[in-house]
């Protein structure tokens, strides 16, 4: 993202907005992940506590989600870089 067109004060304001958004995104990610892993892993209500199997599943689900998200991020960045290059080259 190109923030070079912003003045220093605008830039500072933008940083604050980005921080706030990151906080919101984090909370959304958290609740989304809880729901995703709960739905995928928990289905046995004969006991109040998580079973060992459920717990392993939840931990794997969380780990895997972050690895997935990281990988998507890498591909996403590559794609964006390609787009940038394409936009700049043909002149």
């Amino acid at each position: 993202m190109d923030l070079s067109s912003l003045s220093p004060s605008e830039n500072a304001q933008m940083q604050r907005i980005i921080e706030r958004k990151q906080m919101q995104d984090f909370m959304k990610l958290y609740s989304g992940l809880v729901e995703r892993c709960f739905t995928a892993c928990v289905g046995d209500f004969t006991s109040k506590a998580l079973t060992n199997k459920e717990e392993t599943c939840v931990l794997n689900c969380t780990d895997k989600f972050f690895k997935h998200s990281e990988r998507v991020g890498a591909r996403f960045a590559e794609h964006n870089a390609d787009m940038m290059n394409q936009a700049q080259q043909p002149r």
Binding site: G32, A40, C57, N60, D63, K64, R71
Partner: peptide, 21 residues
């Protein structure tokens, strides 16, 4: 976020037997 969500549903096995892709 839409890509993460959509590709997760399409690609990730929901059995979660291992923590790695």
């Amino acid at each position: 976020n839409r890509i993460v969500s959509s590709c997760h549903s399409k690609c990730i096995n929901p059995r979660y037997s291992e923590p790695d892709l």
